[in-house]
Structures are given as structure tokens and as C-alpha cells.
Design a protein around this nucleic acid. Sequence first.
DNA 1: TTGTTTTAGTTTAGGTGTCAAGTAATCTAG
DNA 2: CTAGATTACTTGACACCTAAACTAAAACAA
Lengths: 166, 166
Amino acid sequence: MSEQSRIWIDAETKITDAPEDHHEELRLWLRLFSVTRLIENDVRSKLQSQFDVTFPRFDILSQLYRVPDGLILGELSQRLMVSPGNITSVIKRLMEDGLIVRTQNPDDRRENIVQMTAEGRAKFAEMAEANEAWIRDLTKDLTPADIRSLQALLQKLKTSVRRALG
Amino acid sequence: MSEQSRIWIDAETKITDAPEDHHEELRLWLRLFSVTRLIENDVRSKLQSQFDVTFPRFDILSQLYRVPDGLILGELSQRLMVSPGNITSVIKRLMEDGLIVRTQNPDDRRENIVQMTAEGRAKFAEMAEANEAWIRDLTKDLTPADIRSLQALLQKLKTSVRRALG
DNA sequence: TTGTTTTAGTTTAGGTGTCAAGTAATCTAG
DNA sequence: CTAGATTACTTGACACCTAAACTAAAACAA
């Protein structure tokens, strides 16, 4: 097998090509997963090389950027869909970098609010702009109508998943 | 904020609701990412609790299942879109579990072919069936037409991404 | 009030992920 | 034939990630 042809093979390429509808949902999931990973890998490597920031840190910053009053750690964990135990350590490193601050809520000392520093906001603004340009570039073969349709269908899928999860 | 309302907030919910088309691509990516993570988290936790297998191991097994002759490590790495260094350690553990075997290619001793054992095939068949049922359940609010449209649009997106990546 | 339960976050153990540097085998140009 | 590339894979350092067990604070209930 030539090197050139191998590049285009991935997780969803090789499944049985049965015309019956029985496996279409699985095929859909495999494609969803693979295209997401493809984009995520590209974004991650660009964030790393151009801004020396990891994808998870960027993810946290983008949440906090839109909420100047900050978020409780648990809220952050739910929005990012990652475990609470994970947030703890990533937050610590972002604090060490001076990009966010953390304050205990005096009215409920269990809660800790994190928010961005001015430095964090400035750095994130730069990254976000680049990120948006990357995404526009990656999606440039889609028409506005494609994007609207995809958006709507993904919303419908998400609703379906959430309903199934109870 | 009530607990009930918080559950439904996540990465793509809170972005600015500007009606201009300028941020639609980014919004699309955020939704794609969040719905993928939602499904992946559910599948991972079910694989763990019901079969004591991790998502990455399942991912490797599902590739090997369809290729009885096995795959070279590098091919596996490309298909799964993960780094070669990663494959090494996951493969080692799958071997220790007796689910796969590894053979050096005598014609090119740099290459190592991995393939499933009978035990691996049997265990995977069970998991794959459960997995397909989970996915059907998660997607059950989508019509066959929805699924076909999504499939086609994701294919178009993937082509766009691949073209952009060169 | 006081004992129980719930909630917010941390810690630990272990698996997964990248990148970069390293090794061994093969290829290739001269 | 042989020195320098290239290819396949491994290793090590470090970052993420989850689940489960833990601590501390607050809420609740008798």
C-alpha cells in the first residue's frame, strides 16, 4: 500500500458497505467522531505551536472569557463536560501562568469562583481570533446553507442524545 | 442558579447570539465538538462499567476486527489518528490481556503486524453489538432522512477539512 | 441543637495523549 | 559497496482525563 493512499484511511472508512439501513446510525457516529478528531488534532497542534497553550486550557479560557464575573469550578466542569477532578489541576496551572484568578465565595466557603485576569483576556483575544480563522479555513468548502443545515441537524442530534441520557 | 438548569449548559450554549453570519463556522465547530464529547463520554462510561474496557482499546479492537490479516502499527496509528508513541503502550496492554497478538514482518523487520486473537474477536463481537445498540438509542429521535443528510454533510465537511490540511 | 445528608472541591491511582529524542532496519545515491 | 537519508517503532517527560475515596462546608431534619 502506497504512503499516499494510506493517509486518507481512518476510523470510519472501512466499515461494511451494507445498503440496508441497519448500521447507518453507527456509521454516522463513526464519521462524527472522526471528523471531530481531525479538526481537534489540527487545532490542538496549532494552539501548541503558535501560542504554547494546550487545547484544554484554551477550552477553559474560552468559557471564562464570556463570563467576566467568573464561574464556579463545578459550573466550569459541567460546561466543559469534564470531571471535577480534572478541572482542579488544569486550573492550578492556569493560575501559575497568571491567566486566571481564583476566589473563595465568602457566602459559601465550599465554592471557588475563577475568572480571567487582564493578561488572560488579552492573550485569549489573540488566540480566539486565530482560532476562528482556522475554523473558517477548515470549513470553507461548506456553503452558508450547508452550515445552517448541519447546525440544525447537530442540534437535533444533541437533543436526541440528551433525551436518551435522561 | 438551580441545579436543574445548570445541567443543560455546556461549551456551545453561551456564545454571542449575533445574527450576522460571521461566527457561524465557529458555532458549528463548538456544537460538533460538544455533541461528540457528549456521546463519547456516555459510550466510554458504558464500555468501562459493562465490559471493563477503555474507549481507546475498543477503538483499536474495532479496527482490527475488520482486518483479519492484521495491521501494521503505523497503519493503525493513522487510522485512529493518534500518535505512534501512543499506540505502543495501548497495544502492549491489549497483548497482556490476550486480545491481540503481534508479529514481526520477516521481510521488513521494522514492521510489526498486530491482529486479534480468537478471544479478542469473541469479546469484541459482544461489545460491538452493545455499542451499536447504545448508538441507535442515542440517535433515535433522528429520522432516516436526518441521518442521511447528516452523513452527507459530515462527509462534505471532512472533505473540506482534508483539503484545507493539504 | 445535633446528627445525617448533600454539595464543592481535592487527591490518588492508573490509563491515554502529545512531542521530541533515540534505536534499529532499510533504502538510496554515488 | 557504503555513507547518509528515511522509515518503523520505542522511550521519556509531561499534560490530561476518569473514577473513587476523601475533606470540608452547608443544608436539613428530628
